[in-house]
Design a protein around this nucleic acid. Structure first.
Length: 383
DNA sequence: CCCTTCACG
DNA sequence: ACGTACGTGAAGGGT
């Protein structure tokens, strides 16, 4: 974690430079970390158009500032400042303080009874939200290193939630995509844009990816339109076409909502229940929340079931066959191991095999696929 | 202590 | 007309 001290100094200098630029653009110095003070500068002093309100005032969140960036130079600078400030306070400054003096390592707590869907959660520190994007994010990951002679192995499930969607819905087209090892987002794009694969652009594939995410989250035309920056009408068209082409998915969503309403809870493939009282609410907004939870919980929760089954199987076999290889973290769809260098190849094979086998153990009708990465730090090891 | 924001899957 | 994509945890501001 010594690397983080140096990074902290660098970020401090960078943040100070940005603070001056921002004060110049704003015409005054103010606390950039205060949404309230920022709102005064943006919406009263500079007279920019507010996008939407929060409970306490005008929003200055990322989405808002991105839109305001077309009117003025300040919002983009604020966004830059915010992202660096976040990394510095939450990770670069905080993590070294939490290193255990006895072991010289970070030890998280994994909570099994917090997340309503059955996922684990991680606290003090949360090691499930360590940055993974951007120059500084990657440098934070580089600070997570192995002892000499050891390596990290990262193993993550590829597209686990869409695979579960295919299994739960038994949609013939989705099942075929995964059985044949096709690209789910390309296949979705082909369907919703009604074009051959050769004519699908990167933009179209990206939009299709958002549609799949949207389905898993309990989609609305508004949410999708916001996410991919098209009109609500266009977003609605994508969704309608998706359901036209993947009819069993709509049937699954309807069934999850109806059953949740009737029983008061939803269920995962291992029988874990999530109560959803909102489904019985008279308030349409609350009911909407409930319906999205009813769609998402069986999917997110079944993914949690699968990785937990895999963790038990992997840990059993490691103890018996490669006792020096340790499972050190779970991040929802990925497992991270520390292993002596001479065991890397055996450990990789064992981990991949057991993680992929947990799908068939639970009777999944689609294959699971695990990607592997190896390295001496967390950045290198990330697949 | 609540609110807002933002890091991850 | 209104609010509107799922699940978390941590930091900082402000009351």
């Amino acid at each position: 974690m010594g690397a983080l001290q140096a990074l902290g100094k660098e970020l401090e200098r960078e943040l100070n430079r940005m603070m001056e630029t921002i004060a110049g653009l704003a015409g005054e110095a103010f606390n950039i970390n205060s949404p309230k003070q920022l709102a005064v500068v943006l919406f009263e002093k500079l007279k920019l158009k507010p996008i939407r309100k929060t409970k306490t005032g005008y929003s200055t969140d990322e989405d808002t500032l991105t839109q305001l960036a077309t009117q003025h130079d300040l919002p983009a600078q604020i966004l830059n400042y915010r992202s660096l400030s976040k990394l510095k306070s939450t990770y670069v400054d905080a993590l070294p303080e939490l290193v255990n003096p006895e072991t010289g390592r970070l030890h998280t707590s994994l909570n099994q009874t917090v997340a309503a869907t059955g996922r684990l959660s991680s606290t003090e520190p949360n090691l499930q939200n360590i940055p993974v994007k951007g120059e500084y994010g990657l440098r934070i990951r580089e600070a997570f290193i192995t002892p000499p002679g050891h390596a990290l192995i990262c193993a993550d499930y590829s597209q686990i939630e869409p695979r579960i969607l295919a299994h739960l819905s038994q949609d013939p087209k989705l099942l075929k995509v995964f059985e044949q090892g096709e690209d789910i987002h390309m296949a979705t794009a082909v369907e919703i844009f009604k074009l051959p694969a050769g004519q699908i652009t990167r933009e179209m594939r990206r939009a299709a990816k958002s549609v799949v995410f949207g389905i898993v989250y309990g989609i609305s035309p508004f949410g999708l339109s916001q996410n991919i920056g098209v009109s609500q009408a266009e977003a609605k068209q994508y969704i309608d076409t998706f359901f036209e082409r993947f009819g069993s998915v709509r049937a699954l969503m309807d069934q999850n909502i109806a059953e949740g309403k009737q029983k008061g809870f939803t269920t995962t493939i291992l029988g874990r229940r999530r109560p959803i009282p909102e489904l019985q609410s008279a308030d349409p907004t609350q009911r909407g929340f409930g319906e999205r939870m009813a769609v998402n919980s069986p999917i997110q929760g079944s993914a949690a079931d699968i990785i937990k089954v895999a963790m038990i199987a992997v840990s059993r076999r490691l103890q018996a066959e490669l006792p020096s290889t340790k499972m050190i973290l779970q991040v929802h769809d990925e497992l991270i191991f520390e292993t002596p260098e001479h065991d890397v190849e055996k450990a990789e094979r064992l981990v991949k095999a057991e993680m992929e086998a947990s799908g068939s153990r639970l009777g999944l009708s689609v294959p699971l696929k695990v990607d592997l990465g190896v390295g001496s730090n967390w950045r290198e090891a990330h697949p």
